[in-house]
Design a protein around this nucleic acid. Sequence first.
DNA 1: TTGTAAGCGTTATCAC
DNA 2: GTGATAACGCTTACAA
Lengths: 375, 375
Amino acid sequence: MTLQERVWQRRNRLRNRFSSLAASEPRESPAPDVAPRRKATLADVAERAGVSTSTASRALNGHGGLAPATRAAVQDAAAKLNFQPSALARSLRTQQTFTVGFVVPDVSSPFYAAALKGAQGRLEQAGYRVMLMDASLNVDRELAALETLLSHQVDGLLVASTGMPRALFDGAVGAAATPTIFFDGVVEGTGEGAVTLDNEGGITLLVDHLVEHGHERIAVLAGSQRESAGAARLRAFHTAMAAHGISPVDRYVKVCDWEIADGRRAGMELLADPKPATAVLASSAELALGFMSAAATRGIRVPDDVALVAFDDPYFGDLLEPPLTAVAYDAREIGATAAELLVEAMRSETIAVEVTVPVTLVRRRSCGCQPEASR
Amino acid sequence: MTLQERVWQRRNRLRNRFSSLAASEPRESPAPDVAPRRKATLADVAERAGVSTSTASRALNGHGGLAPATRAAVQDAAAKLNFQPSALARSLRTQQTFTVGFVVPDVSSPFYAAALKGAQGRLEQAGYRVMLMDASLNVDRELAALETLLSHQVDGLLVASTGMPRALFDGAVGAAATPTIFFDGVVEGTGEGAVTLDNEGGITLLVDHLVEHGHERIAVLAGSQRESAGAARLRAFHTAMAAHGISPVDRYVKVCDWEIADGRRAGMELLADPKPATAVLASSAELALGFMSAAATRGIRVPDDVALVAFDDPYFGDLLEPPLTAVAYDAREIGATAAELLVEAMRSETIAVEVTVPVTLVRRRSCGCQPEASR
DNA sequence: TTGTAAGCGTTATCAC
DNA sequence: GTGATAACGCTTACAA
């Protein structure tokens, strides 16, 4: 692909960033109220208001008692100069950045994007900014991300781990003692809290439903086992099967990564089996999509030839063919909840807490259910 | 939904953040090499290496000439103390943060999430961090986001505008003179560059294809007209229609927001028309999905009763029923390209540039095309 | 009520 | 080569 480029005519944005006519000599120019060329500092405001910087600071931050008149004068000056305090300087002094680090395996995944959105909203509300790092599904980069964040002195950390060992995490974050809440991908035994989906409950719902439909030869497309969610789901699968007295066939359990392509590949293998499973449980929407794609190319019909259910209800779930039976939950909520816990942890020393977000079963046609009367 | 909470046993993360045994007295404790309780500062490193802070700084940053021996000593000390320079202090001093602000209308939208991912990768490669702000499809919040970012002294801005007037943008960013690259949502006439999709080309592809199928009564689900991309697509629609000598029916052009629900609503209206259009062009994948949903509940079949094409090829495009004919492009690339331009703009004073990312037509069944032999 | 001064942790400009 | 010293822009004791 080639890009088309076109050079614009050069615009004349004034950028005399280095012009030295700061506020040292308050020139009597005709338009003193216009936004200053160099960014105004607290000193500029103070000078203009005819007070000291400390007074100016207090006036702006509403601290200590001070004459209403001076306060007004300062505020006025600040407004006129369009003063924006430097977050950098303030943070350096106060040792608080009001910034939290957000680390995920892959921002472009709908799940993490939604979680990010949820968290962002809550954090902004509480006055925090988000610094985002994408670990690219890679432990080393996750570690690097944490270090970067720490060097920026974030006040807190929201992390969905790619599967980092505890020792590594504590080594990096331990010394800084930065409050951390995990979500989805948890590092066991550390952090001030964690919020996860009800993986066990969801998988149980799915397995039970498949069994209700009469299936016993159930295959599973398990996601990456390095991530806590993937491991939890596979574990839950075995438990749920055992509860029905069914022992899963080894050939039917496919551990793979989370991408559509992985699901497709695993699906092809499953379908090539001489005695294939009659139902498939996909650990994520992507894996289900991959399986559907595999089934389509093999000419296998879902649900007639093989039933399919998934953990994750994509927003286009009922526009697929067939509409996908899935476990649904609110991805935004998981982020929002994690953010809430973090805010609390940053404010006070709270005890650690673990919360799990509930899930529900959405019955559609891919499992063999009949469509309901109407929508 | 109620959340399940469980309080963990209190872990004993040592957090003597305020313990005062900094490095002032280098205690002869048995394990001096262990990570220090309070974060090590450059002064600590210097002291340990027996040099001044300036020398330590130079040694670590590879500046000016200095004895190999001392350099080694400093580096050694830094390693032992696990020294991480404070990004805050460094930025305050150098007036460079190596952070860029990223502003989008909605992070959880697949398009922006992908763009973010693309940008993040390139920026990280160039040594920049991303500070993310979600404007929630709202001009005021976009403005607030810009101000926050500016107060953090970001080195550059990557923004997909929700449709902010130029004066407002310049008022906020002008004084700071922070390099800005727009993508997707452009504020005309400002910034150092912009990267957009080939909206005209894409819409033309779609209209032409529909006309090839023999359609004349073509409806359009246009997105929000406050955003530059939405406006450009609607404009292109009129142009493309005119090129075929067709004058669009007013009732057939539906301006609405970008959500699935909006598409569904507009779709319902379209289908309720006494003499409905024979084809629909959706300005985005979400709008197409909304239309499909409307068609489904009305019992209208696509493409038999009405053809459908969309600008945006969702990744599950061929698993829909019917598979969606759409204009495809690489969302990640748009972010990556924007990031590239920004990095360049931050490094040198470059002239402004406008690049457009190419799009392609993916023919599937929703337009009335027959499926190809096999996949 | 307000001002003076110290300091957050760096880097840069000088001397030595 | 290396070390004082002065910023960067702010907050906060402590004085006045």
